[in-house]
Design a protein around this nucleic acid. Structure first.
Lengths: 176, 176
DNA sequence: TGCAGCATGTAAATAGTTACATGATTAT
DNA sequence: ATAATCATGTAACTATTTACATGCTGCA
C-alpha cells in the first residue's frame, strides 16, 4: 500500500488540501500513483489518526473553507523508514494489451479506433510533460536538489511516454 | 476489473489449469495484468459460476490431479463484448517514483542500491522478452494472425523495457 | 530427510471503485 | 437559471493481498 506514502511524499514538499491532493493524484502525480478523491480523504483521516499528518482549518471568503494538511515529524520518519525498504517493480495494468492479445476476435478497425483514442490521451499528457520540462527544467543542475529529484520522475514520464507513442505507431501500421 | 477478461483471453488461446494460469499471471502475462494464485482460483470459480469457463478433471500418474479450464461459447461472447468497450489508459503504480520524488530525504547511495536491484529485474525480463522475439517472431508476417497479435503485446514489453532501462541509466548518472 | 515443484484451495484484512450526498461561489 | 470549480465526506461493494492450509512426487 503506497497511496499512504505517496500522500506523505507530496505533502512533505508542500502542504495541501485533500481536494488539491486528489487533483494531483488524478493528474500528474497520478502517473506514479492513481487514486480517487474518496480514497484520498479516507487516507488523510487514517494518516491523521496515526499522527503522520495534521491539518489547519483555513477560512476563505471567496471559496468554501478548507483543511490544509501537512506532514508531522513522525510522518517524515515513517516516509523515510518506508523509503529504505526494497521497492517492488512497478506494476502495469493494461487492459488494452489483453484486448490486443486476442485482437483477432474482432475487426481490426474496432481495435484501431480504441488505439487512436488512447494514443490521443498519451499524446496530450506527453505535451504537458514536455511543457513542464521546458518551463521548469531548462537547466536542471542549477536547481535545488529537491527539484532535481522531482525532475527525474518527470523524465520517466517523458521517456516512457515517447516509447509508448512509438509502440502505438507500430500497432497502427500492423492493424492497417 | 479485468483479471476476469485476462483469464478469458489467455484460456481462449489455450486451455490451462489454475496453477498454470497463476504462473502466467505472475510472469510474462503478468506484464499486462498481475495476480496471485488465490485470486486466479477465486476468479475461475466465479467465471465457472457465470458459465464463462468449464473444467475437465485430468488424472496424472506422476503428478497430482488437475482441473483443465477452457472458455465456453458464452465466455467468448463476454470477452468480445468487453473488448468493444472503450479502454481506459493503462495504470502504472510505481512506488520507486514516489521514493525518487523525495529522494533528497535519504542518501543517494541508498536509492542507488534500490535502483540497481530494480534495474536487474527489468534487465532479466528484457532478456526473456528478447529471447521470445528471436525464437518465435523472426518473421512475424508469416505467422497466423493470432500470433501476430500476440507479438504486438510482446513488442510493448520490449519497447517500454528498453525505455525503462535507458531511464535507469539517466538516474544512475544523476545519483553519482 | 528435506526441499522444490505441482496442484488447489479458504479466511481475514486491506485497498480501491462506484454510488450517493451536500453546499458554497463565480462566471455565462 | 445553470454549469463549473472548490471543498468534503459516507456507504456499499468489489478487488487484491497476506496468512493459513493441505498433500503428492521426484530428486539430492
Amino acid at each position: 500500500m503506497s497511496l499512504k506514502h505517496s500522500i506523505l511524499a507530496v505533502l512533505s514538499s508542500e502542504p495541501k488540501t485533500g481536494y488539491q491532493l486528489s487533483k494531483d493524484v488524478q493528474g500528474s502525480t497520478g502517473f506514479f500513483w492513481k487514486a480517487t478523491h474518496q480514497q484520498v480523504y479516507k487516507e488523510l483521516a487514517s494518516l491523521e489518526g496515526s499522527g503522520f499528518v495534521k491539518h489547519l482549518e483555513v477560512a476563505q471568503k471567496d471559496k468554501p473553507d478548507k483543511k490544509v494538511y501537512s506532514v508531522t515529524k513522525s510522518g517524515i520518519k515513517e516516509l523515510i523508514r518506508w523509503m529504505r525498504e526494497p521497492t517492488e517493480l512497478a506494476v502495469m495494468r493494461d487492459a488494452f494489451l489483453i484486448k490486443l492479445f486476442v485482437g483477432h476476435l474482432i475487426e481490426p478497425k474496432e481495435i484501431l479506433e480504441d488505439l487512436e483514442r488512447q494514443k490521443q490521451v498519451v499524446e496530450t499528457r506527453q505535451e504537458q510533460f514536455q511543457n513542464l520540462e521546458k518551463e521548469y527544467f531548462q537547466n536542471p543542475s542549477s536547481l535545488p536538489i529537491e527539484h532535481q529529484f522531482n525532475y527525474m520522475t518527470l523524465r520517466k514520464g517523458i521517456i516512457l511516454g515517447k516509447a509508448w507513442l512509438s509502440w502505438c505507431k507500430e500497432v497502427e501500421d500492423f492493424l492497417k
